[in-house]
């Protein structure tokens, strides 16, 4: 299914156009996680879906998959590190609780509100998206190396 040269030119063009919209939708779900249904996990899965779509359409020899895999795993590790660090900052500010909501909460329903929760959402979203994409790329690269 995942071939070297990818699918037909029509599929390639459509996937170029659609994947940007999927990516934007993932970002919307992550950023509005504290207002509308969704959040870090759902949005991150949508983000990884946009990348997987591109790899499926364009095949494996166009993209430099090994570098992509390394970058994705580095981004994933950084995101989870930022998540834990933001939680640890709560230990030193205010009432000294892990996962303390230390930023001002603002007005409920505004885009910039709810303190640290949107930042947690963004970190978890990047982490989930990079993790799912890394797993997919690892499987694709394994198949490429086996078939050689």
């Amino acid at each position: 299914m995942i071939t070297m040269k990818g699918m037909s030119p029509i599929v390639k063009k459509v996937s170029q156009l659609i994947s940007a919209i999927i990516f934007l939708y993932g970002i919307y779900i992550i950023v509005h996680g504290h207002l509308t249904p969704g959040g870090g996990f759902a949005g991150g899965a949508v983000l990884s879906g946009a990348f997987i779509f591109l790899v499926l359409a364009f095949g494996t020899d166009v993209l430099n998959l090994r570098r992509e895999e390394e970058e994705a795993s580095v981004i994933e590790g950084l995101a989870i590190l930022i998540f834990v660090l933001m939680a640890t900052i709560g230990l030193f500010i205010g009432i000294r609780v892990f996962f303390n909501n230390y930023l001002p909460k603002g007005q409920i329903g505004e885009l910039i509100s709810a303190g640290v929760i949107p930042l947690y959402n963004i970190a978890v979203g990047i982490e989930v998206g990079a993790a799912l994409f890394t797993i997919f790329l690892a499987l694709v690269i394994y198949k490429e190396e086996i078939s050689k």
């Binding site: 504290h34 207002l35 989870i80 947690y120």
Partner: peptide, 29 residues
């Protein structure tokens, strides 16, 4: 929590340890 979506409010404030565990599981995978 100041979050209009109750699920996210519970997930990242009251039960944030669960979310940390979930992220750790994905990282380990």
């Amino acid at each position: 929590t100041g979050s209009a979506n109750l699920v996210t409010g519970v997930l990242f404030d009251f039960r944030a340890y669960d979310t940390l565990g979930e992220a750790t599981i994905l990282f380990t995978a």
